[in-house]
Computed example of a mutant assay.
Amino acid sequence: MDSGVILGDILNLLAGLNDVKLCYVPRLANEAEHGQTKFALRCDEDKYWMEDFPLCIQDIIAKEATVLA
Rank of each mutant, 00 (worst) to 15 (best):
M1R: 10
M1Q: 11
M1W: 03
M1E: 05
M1H: 08
S3K: 14
S3W: 07
S3E: 11
G4C: 07
G4K: 15
G4V: 06
G4Y: 10
G4D: 08
V5L: 10
I6M: 09
G8P: 01
G8I: 06
G8M: 10
D9G: 08
D9W: 12
D9S: 08
I10D: 00
L11N: 11
L11W: 08
N12C: 05
N12T: 12
L13I: 08
L13A: 13
L13N: 11
L13H: 13
L14Q: 02
L14T: 01
L14H: 01
L14F: 02
A15W: 03
G16K: 07
G16N: 08
L17D: 05
L17R: 13
L17N: 11
N18H: 11
N18W: 01
N18P: 02
N18Y: 00
D19Y: 07
D19K: 01
D19L: 04
D19F: 00
V20G: 05
K21R: 14
K21T: 14
K21M: 02
K21V: 09
L22C: 05
C23M: 07
Y24Q: 07
Y24R: 11
V25C: 08
P26E: 12
L28A: 13
L28E: 15
L28Y: 08
L28T: 10
L28K: 13
A29L: 11
A29G: 05
N30L: 01
N30D: 07
A32V: 14
A32T: 08
A32R: 06
H34Q: 12
H34C: 10
G35K: 09
G35D: 10
G35T: 05
Q36K: 06
Q36E: 10
Q36V: 12
T37W: 14
T37G: 08
T37I: 09
K38Y: 05
K38I: 13
K38Q: 15
F39Q: 06
F39I: 01
F39E: 09
A40T: 08
A40V: 03
A40L: 13
L41K: 12
L41S: 03
R42N: 13
C43V: 08
C43W: 09
C43P: 02
D44Y: 02
D44S: 12
E45Q: 15
E45S: 15
E45Y: 11
D46A: 14
D46I: 02
K47N: 15
Y48F: 12
Y48E: 13
W49G: 05
M50C: 09
M50Y: 14
E51H: 03
E51D: 13
E51I: 03
E51Q: 12
E51A: 11
D52C: 04
D52W: 00
D52A: 01
F53A: 07
F53E: 03
F53C: 04
F53P: 02
P54W: 04
P54L: 07
P54Q: 06
P54R: 02
L55M: 02
L55G: 03
L55Y: 01
L55N: 04
L55W: 01
C56H: 09
I57E: 09
I57C: 07
I57Q: 07
I57H: 07
Q58M: 12
I61D: 00
I61H: 01
I61G: 00
K63P: 00
K63E: 02
K63C: 05
E64P: 00
E64K: 10
E64F: 02
E64T: 06
V67Y: 10
V67R: 14
L68M: 05
L68T: 01
A69E: 07
A69C: 04
